[in-house]
């Protein structure tokens, strides 16, 4: 580990961004040991799933548990309120990831906005799940009633959390607000008495079409009795697909809405992400020295980059204009969309 910066210090853990061989990683350094289910993290570390964080290292250091994973350039779901169409799209992606994990007998157990990072790259919005292996019921406002009874996470408890998460995504705040562990446990048991559609309607922020499209989802996910929820995640996915088709005209419209939202919200917020404080992840007494050294390294690197840019520009302008101009001309001509009919023709494929 070479350099590190503290991103956040919470009651459960300190979060650092560290540089591992030039690659930015997140180090979550818990304040206690045995802070997570080691077996679950071991399984996650062996996976390469697009919707799951990439765990690089985990274990114990100085009597405290830690997990190190690849830095995700994106925005935590907890900082966002999503348009209904975008939220449904994100939910479908999450369901797909959870289904893939189910094949490995892995369940998240703590689905909440803070554990979902929305990334946007190459025109695609992708939610990425972090913080697996929770010990305990997880974020109380999102935990299924059975989790308060000490049952392990499974498909149905994750399904309940997904329902609560969907509400938070579209509404902007949590469905349940209670005092302490017992208050949330009791509220989760009473969840069937909540009329979620009515709450959405009363807010005046949703169209009737949106409320009606979402209604079957609450019934399938936000239920106190696990048996009353949808049979499996596949059924939830089908309901999400139906809801989306009620709100958007075709897949292209959905993708356009998602892309527009991502470009206006995610891209800018991702750019604004900066560490709040600098400090060593592992105190060593040479903090100041390392800081100065890192400034020096950055300055040298910037200097080299500048020299290379200048050299590149000089080279580009010294005699290479002719052939590069020809290249630009050919590219423009060959990529013209004026006559793409040739590519509609499927005769080539017969």
């Amino acid at each position: 580990m070479s350099e590190s910066e503290l991103l956040h210090s919470g009651g459960e853990a300190d979060i650092y961004v560290v540089s591992e061989k030039g690659r930015p990683c997140i180090l979550k350094w818990y304040k206690a040991k045995n802070a997570f289910d080691t077996e679950a993290i071991r399984k996650i570390a062996a996976l390469e799933e697009v919707g799951v964080y990439r765990v690089r290292e985990f274990g114990e250091r100085e009597g405290r548990s830690f997990v190190e994973y690849d830095y995700l350039p994106g925005v935590s779901c907890s900082e966002l309120k999503l348009p209904v169409v975008v939220a449904l799209y994100v939910m479908r992606k999450l369901v797909k990831t959870l289904e893939a994990l189910k094949a490995h007998q892995l369940f998240h157990g703590d689905l909440n906005p803070g554990n979902i990072i929305l990334t946007f790259a190459d025109g695609a919005l992708q939610p990425v799940l972090i913080d697996f292996g929770i010990v305990g019921p997880g974020a109380l406002a999102y935990a299924a009633p059975e989790r308060f009874q000490g049952k392990p996470a499974d498909e149905k408890s994750d399904m309940y959390s997904l329902g609560m998460l969907l509400f938070r995504m579209v509404f902007g705040s949590e469905l349940v607000a209670a005092n302490g562990y017992d208050g949330y446990a009791s509220a989760s048991l009473d969840i069937d008495r909540r009329d979620i559609s009515e709450a959405l309607y009363a807010s005046g922020k949703f169209t009737v079409q949106e409320i009606s499209a979402l209604a079957p989802l609450w019934k399938a996910m936000v239920r106190a009795d696990a048996d009353a929820r949808a049979e499996d995640l596949d059924e939830v996915d089908e309901l999400l697909e139906i809801a989306l088709s009620e709100l958007a005209v075709g897949d292209v419209s959905v993708q356009k809405a998602v892309r527009e939202y991502a470009e206006s919200e995610i891209v800018e917020k991702t750019r604004q992400k900066v560490p709040v404080e600098s400090k060593n992840a592992i105190p060593s007494g040479t903090e100041q020295k390392q800081k100065k050294f890192s400034y020096l390294k950055v300055s040298v690197l910037l200097g080299i980059v500048l020299i290379l840019i200048v050299l590149g520009l000089v080279l580009l302008n010294s005699g290479k204009k002719g052939v590069d101009d020809a290249g630009a001309y050919i590219l423009e001509k060959s990529r013209s969309l004026e006559s793409p009919d040739a590519f509609v023709d499927t005769n080539l494929l017969k």
């Binding site: 025109g123 695609a124 292209v252 993708q255 892309r259 969309l337 793409p340 009919d341 590519f343």
Partner: peptide
């Protein structure tokens, strides 16, 4: 879908 969201003027992709 990716083509159409990236380049909405790529008409062939609508047809296909």
């Amino acid at each position: 879908i990716h083509i159409l969201t990236s380049e909405p003027m790529f008409v062939s992709a609508y047809v296909n």
